[in-house]
Design a protein around this nucleic acid. Structure first.
Lengths: 223, 223
DNA sequence: ACGGCCATTAAGAATTCTCTAAGAAATCCC
DNA sequence: GGGATTTCTTAGAGAATTCTTAATGGCCGT
């Protein structure tokens, strides 16, 4: 069942009645994929490319707030709405500060959800899935790189995450600590980052990732 | 001693009680300007630059929806929240479709409004501040300098600190002792400062750092 | 113009930071 | 299970930065 012209929306909702219902409601505007728990949702959010996320707050395995903030820490800014049964204002604030772009309490109105999705995706630049990295085209969805001359280079998952994070914020200098926090586990050797930068540079032309001595790494207008 | 520059927020609200109240609530996070009618609001939104808009829906002279959609038609995408007394879902949908990024019903919670503003402005990347140093643009975060002709020059940590200190207080003459105390360790050779001024001048055009014979060094417009 | 002080510049040693290779541990896939 | 791939660790070579020392050149009052 493919409707490629519709934007892709990932719905993460464990309620076996509500999930399909919301999916049905949004099917008119989006190509909806449903994930039933937080870990599955996070995995899909990381490995495929989406135009919008609708995430329930209470989820098995990984709650919705953690899901969204994990994405944000990895530099993935896909617009996200958090749904919740809780109506308390403090919960809304928490959700928004976790990195969600919007927040709705159940029970909600289908028309309002659709309108909020429209408003949300409108402001975020039409998610062009291809990142230009000094002439190389990087497709985070495929984890593939096309060289300026057309050759295709495959990246591993970590290499891809690193590139996505750096390329997603051109000119920003990431410290090793930031990259370590975003891509690796606490306790990993502090030099893992260096190693992966090295791997990346072996696959991409060396000048793509610049090192700023004493600070960290950066992708941006080379000189 | 150092006042961080607050983002600028335009509040358009005609209620003489509510307007100042909201302005007060947001003053902690924003530099708030209040406009009391729609035409005044639109004029300000068009002629000055803002980081966020908070617009009441019911306004004299020009209602909030028209204000926002007028802005959008002119290609101005400043993130906007619409406030309204009406709670009906149809009104929210209308507001969002007019081009607002978010919509809140009165009475609303101050914390939620602030959280929604944070969520809304977060995605609009905050460009880090650039210092103009005699035509050169200095980016302390990247420790990089862009020459008036576009070339990019990297600075080392010490060079960058020195430049930041001098450029942060234009026209102030720093003695060597001050610079030594500010940038180096007690016991370092007294001529380190000279050396680093030399390094800077090798990278930037020589006239940027002026020496005041017998006193010290200075950056400024005086000629 | 002269002499003394001040400033500039070059060269190099010590330190700190980064790169790279090689291999061990974990994971994936057939 | 076993081979291949990916992930992470370690350690030494290599590069950049920081600071010292010393020689050269310029400013200023007399």
């Amino acid at each position: 069942m493919h409707t490629p012209e519709l934007p892709r929306l990932l719905l993460v909702e464990d309620d076996p009645a509500l999930g399909p219902l919301i999916a049905e409601l949004l099917a008119a505007d989006y190509n909806v994929q449903l994930a039933a728990d937080g870990q599955r949702g996070l995995h899909l959010a990381l490995t495929e490319s989406w135009d919008a996320l609708v995430v329930d707050r209470g989820l098995p395995l990984l709650d919705g707030l953690s899901l969204v903030s994990a994405l944000r820490r990895k530099g993935i800014g896909t617009p996200a709405i958090i749904l919740t049964a809780l109506g308390a204002t403090a919960d809304k604030i928490e959700g928004l500060d976790a990195g969600a772009n919007d927040y709705m309490s159940k029970p909600f109105d289908a028309g309002e959800l659709r309108a909020r999705l429209r408003a949300m995706t409108r402001s975020f630049a039409p998610a062009d899935p291809l990142l230009d990295v000094g002439g190389w085209l990087f497709d985070p969805a495929n984890r593939s790189l096309r060289s300026p001359y057309g050759g295709l280079v495959g990246l591993t998952a970590k290499e891809s995450e690193l590139l996505a994070l750096l390329a997603g914020h051109p000119d920003k200098v990431f410290t090793r600590a930031e990259l370590l926090a975003g891509l690796f586990h606490a306790g990993d050797s502090p030099t893992v980052v260096d190693t992966y930068v090295h791997y990346l540079r072996k696959k991409v032309s060396k000048s793509v990732v610049r090192t700023v001595h004493g600070l960290g790494y950066q992708i941006g207008d080379a000189e």
